[in-house]
Amino acid sequence: MSDQRESYQPPAGGAGRSYAGASAASGTMHYLCAECGVKVAINKGEPIRCKECGHRILYKQRTKRMVQFEAR
């Protein structure tokens, strides 16, 4: 019960916005296939195709960074 009284801590590592996200090491981004919903890793310059079903439209995933909105 007592630990719930602590003030809210923003998630760590968010102070200086780290530009490299989950893809820091590899440099590849993951996208979702429009048809089967599977996560596909595409590098720069690669043709756009889903690995599983061969569909040609990929959706980008939402950013991991925090976005602030006004409640207006």
Partner: peptide, 30 residues
């Protein structure tokens, strides 16, 4: 606000990299 980003591949040409993206913007209108 950026709402959606779609990467559009080209039909048939397997070797061409991505040439087009489609970006959907969301504009709140109170």
């Amino acid at each position: 606000y950026i709402e959606e980003v779609r990467l559009l591949g080209v039909e048939g040409n397997d070797n061409k990299p991505m040439q087009q993206i489609s970006v959907k913007y969301r504009i709140p209108r109170s």
